[in-house]
Write a protein that binds this DNA or RNA. Sequence first.
DNA 1: GCAAAACCGTACCGGCGGTACAGGAGAGCA
DNA 2: TGCTCTCCTGTACCGCCGGTACGGTTTTGC
Lengths: 206, 206
Amino acid sequence: MRKGEETRTRILDVAEAAVLQKGFGGTSIEELIAETGITKSGFFYHFRDKNELAKALLNRYIENDERIYDEIFSRARDLMDDPLQSFLLGLKLLSELLSDLPNGHPGCLVATICYYERLFDREIQEINRQAALTWRRRFRGMFDEIFAVYTPREQFDVDQLADMVSTVIEGGIVLSKALKEPQSLPGQILVFRSFVKLLFQPGQHA
Amino acid sequence: MRKGEETRTRILDVAEAAVLQKGFGGTSIEELIAETGITKSGFFYHFRDKNELAKALLNRYIENDERIYDEIFSRARDLMDDPLQSFLLGLKLLSELLSDLPNGHPGCLVATICYYERLFDREIQEINRQAALTWRRRFRGMFDEIFAVYTPREQFDVDQLADMVSTVIEGGIVLSKALKEPQSLPGQILVFRSFVKLLFQPGQHA
DNA sequence: GCAAAACCGTACCGGCGGTACAGGAGAGCA
DNA sequence: TGCTCTCCTGTACCGCCGGTACGGTTTTGC
């Protein structure tokens, strides 16, 4: 029903912010229900245990993540016909989006789960793995299109190249948080963007 | 005294493995003392609270990290006179070292702390920040030497370029863990290595 | 052999994850 | 109007955990 979904969403909102700041272990259910204005029984009506909360949280995060990627790169695709130019524009748009976040990227739930593997069941770890594989497929598709048109200055494994996008984003988030420099992440993405540009720039052998 | 240090080290060993697998919140002191074969009183004799355990853990991890970097890149420096070749060899050695870890990289404590910021005091966060800054200085120094000899195909902010090393490592660890593919991390480092090679390869304008 | 270091044992506190279960308010429908 | 289903509230309870307090004991270095 309507009301139930609304409460559930509110719990997830509060939980997501808390988990990204303090981790799963550091986030108490009691604190979540206090901030949500709900009772303990109410919480356990929506989620059987903390594991199920994590699962719902992760699924929602991944969905939202995919939506953002879809928007950015489809917009880039609309503006640029060339697959390389479109990809480079997408990275630029992504960098700008992240640069506009006032407090920087709040953190990636997938990364959080990575550092908690033993705390959750295999299902959650599998969801996490599938998310990373989806990222790989997404960017691999883009690189495949680019390779159909351009000759790279060096040969790469396409999957590894595709993974590099996720690597830079995840690593950039960690570094941004460690350094307390929110602008580090968008900067790293632009560095990667330049590398990609360089890779497909016609060189002496072209 | 001798015995005290030994016990302290044993606690830190057990704690480090546990924290990297379950996070700080997911690691109980009771489980640490059980595995170490020590009593609760004994634990609190060595560490005032969990925060101090985290501090000691982080400091030790960073020291060890620095030692490994020192070894690898000084060995590379001995083998190669050219700063670029030396840096590229260092990345290769690092990749091989990580590739030889049977279960993959156990995880970076600096990254773990990032995702727990609100759980620890400012001192720990500052230690974390200084660690990331030390990485930046280390690799910035290498790039400075390279720039003194080579002309890059594209201009970069040297700090951002230096940060890219840490970004790729941290991101590679996350992706490796998420994908459950230990070989992903060394692979990503080699991709980055190729990018660096590309950057300083003489092109059409050279 | 003596003092300091390095513990052990025990008892206790409050918070937290989780369970159990009874009950109630409100919406939708017959 | 009454019935049912969803969406909760309230209360009581369990065991684990972080942390404190404190007295006692063994080990070590000198």
